[in-house]
Nucleic acid binder design. Structure first.
Ligand SMILES: [Mn+2]
Ligand SMILES: [Mn+2]
Ligand SMILES: [Zn+2]
Ligand SMILES: [Zn+2]
Lengths: 140, 140
DNA sequence: CTCTAGTTGCGAATGATTTGCAACTGGCAT
DNA sequence: ATGCCAGTTGCAAATCATTCGCAACTAGAG
């Protein structure tokens, strides 16, 4: 039970030639189960619940490996620690509520298209980008 | 001689109630004279040329004060160190050439407008944002 | 089952940035 | 001009997130 949706991330790891060890299984599961943007400490905390002995250095190393293989995404949001999320179905950018720290995702085909357009005008080819919009709830 | 263009930044500091000390004069001058996006070490190097005794902790502290008063802008660009630039006449975003590290500025009214639009749709008010586009020169 | 390169735990090392503290010094008030 | 004192500085030590060295494991190919 609970094995619904054969772990895509684990399969992708295998394809990337990564060993599927106990600590990694735990980390992958936590990543898949997370729908927010946790930092390393928080991921470590979550992973310990299923794999108590895990060391935070292992979490760091595994996240680096996963991110080098483009299996997860790394974010900054300017609060000093790096945050992570699984690669989404569809690319999105983020609103960060500066009052609550809440992160809200959004998609804008128009903005994406305009980026391509302006990059082309400058003779550049886009490799990646990040659009972080720091916001505050509208006074109603 | 060379005192052309009475230092706007210094005046803004005075208005903000900051003391204009020797070390600060030097830092402000370097910031005004820089048209790139130097990091703290580089700024420290440049400041030492006009004020040899300055300590890097002072540079850090001053940059923090200036940035808290919105007199300069802080950037990340994902290379581990924080970079700075004076607040520009007109807001702009950045291309970062991942091969050379070169930073190129651009302005897109359209993208700015779309951000406002989408933020409004989500019930947010934009406080600030950052759009960093990591690029590579087009194969000609 | 064996063997080995990949992985892990642990503690020490890094590197950027911050901080405690005593010694200075702008610049407003006499 | 002179004095005063909160803001500032230099220096060294402390933080904080992240990385690394290394010896002990172990996944998984053959
Ligand atoms: Mn996201
Ligand atoms: Mn710029
Ligand atoms: Zn985007
Ligand atoms: Zn912008």
């Amino acid at each position: 039970m609970s094995d619904v949706g054969a772990s895509n991330l684990t399969e992708r790891c295998r394809l990337a030639g990564l060993r599927i060890t106990g600590p990694r299984k735990a980390i992958l599961k936590v990543l898949e189960d997370s729908s927010d943007h946790p930092d390393v400490e928080e991921l470590h905390r979550r992973v310990k619940r299923v794999h108590p002995g895990i060391n935070i250095a292992t979490v760091y190393r595994t996240l680096n490996v996963l991110s080098e293989h483009d299996l997860i995404e790394r974010h900054s949001f300017d609060d000093g620690r790096t945050r992570y999320e699984t690669i989404p179905e569809e690319h999105h950018d983020h609103f960060i509520d500066i009052d609550t720290g809440e992160v809200v995702e959004f998609v804008s085909e128009e903005i994406e298209a305009m980026q391509e357009e302006i990059a082309r005008r400058h003779g550049f080819e886009i490799v990646s980008h990040r659009l972080d919009i720091f916001v505050r709830r509208r006074d109603p």
